[in-house]
Design a protein around this nucleic acid. Sequence first.
DNA 1: CCAACTGTACCGTCTGGACGGTACAGTAAC
DNA 2: GTTACTGTACCGTCCAGACGGTACAGTTGG
Lengths: 176, 176
Amino acid sequence: MASRDDRSTRDRLLDAFEQQLVEGGSRSATLDAVAAAAGVSKGGLLYHFHSKDELVEGMLERLHEQADADVEKMRTAPAGPVDFYLETSVDSGSPFDRALIAATRVAQENDPRAAAAMARVRDAWFAVLAEHLGDEALARTIQLIGDGLYFDDSTGLRDPDALAHVRKVLGRLDVL
Amino acid sequence: MASRDDRSTRDRLLDAFEQQLVEGGSRSATLDAVAAAAGVSKGGLLYHFHSKDELVEGMLERLHEQADADVEKMRTAPAGPVDFYLETSVDSGSPFDRALIAATRVAQENDPRAAAAMARVRDAWFAVLAEHLGDEALARTIQLIGDGLYFDDSTGLRDPDALAHVRKVLGRLDVL
DNA sequence: CCAACTGTACCGTCTGGACGGTACAGTAAC
DNA sequence: GTTACTGTACCGTCCAGACGGTACAGTTGG
């Protein structure tokens, strides 16, 4: 009945993997580095994940869970889905955001599973935005703005006023 | 006096380097792969660039030249800078776009030179947008949309209607 | 109740291959 | 004879993955 206790090390390894991907890119996300960052030996890592591929698989699996929860929160957000979506696009400190950026790094290495995972998450977001706004063009545009906020964050160039600017413009469109 | 003639192979190497970075990520952009893609031996590559670092340096140098030319074209575009900016954010087949995506890949590996290059290009674009629109909030928002288009392209998820959607929304703001 | 055994969660070491880089001899064109 | 390469032979390091071993908590049979 210790099946709930192995979550700790397993998740710590996944966290470390994501951290390496986000902070140093896929090149620095080696098994050694991941194991060290998780405070586990390389052998210990390979006990939980038999290959680097399984590490990716595990990360993507967890991403899906987080994504489902995020979409649900977006749907029921008090300030509305648009505000929630934009807000969470900037706040790149959250575990979910880190998982997403990590997934894009893997997708860039031509991993079809990661690309599919990203597509699935994006489609879910778009569905909520489009339903709420009743306007595909506007929904897609807002999604692009969110992508832009993501992109800026993940390349290290953060403009603290960006979100305020976006709010101002969307206000003119009676969206916020 | 052959300094204009080595452009051929030198540029072909830089092209190949960028191609590897864009299509396979930084992990697959090895010296062997770059040399092979350029139809040059590894020794030939190292004749032109004494290290991988010099390859990055050369790429960034060329990026700056391309960026200056792009900003000039943007400034004098017949349809206006906004339209030009958005248009070129989607068309990821152009050499300049490829160079930019390649630079982001390098920047993700914590290369400060690449990050600085990206920042410089982005600042130049923003200056033109802000000057043309006379509205910082709108300029920043449009820049974010462009970033979003870039991001989508570079992660392989392309929505063919994205640009049309954006145009429609910007039309409501009397921008296009 | 205790010995034998099983499964889980690791650690430390090793190997084979890839990668960055060096060195250098040879070649072909201008 | 300089420029622009090719090709081969290396070296040291890094990396993914395999492997053998350890500690220990449970379980099962007698």
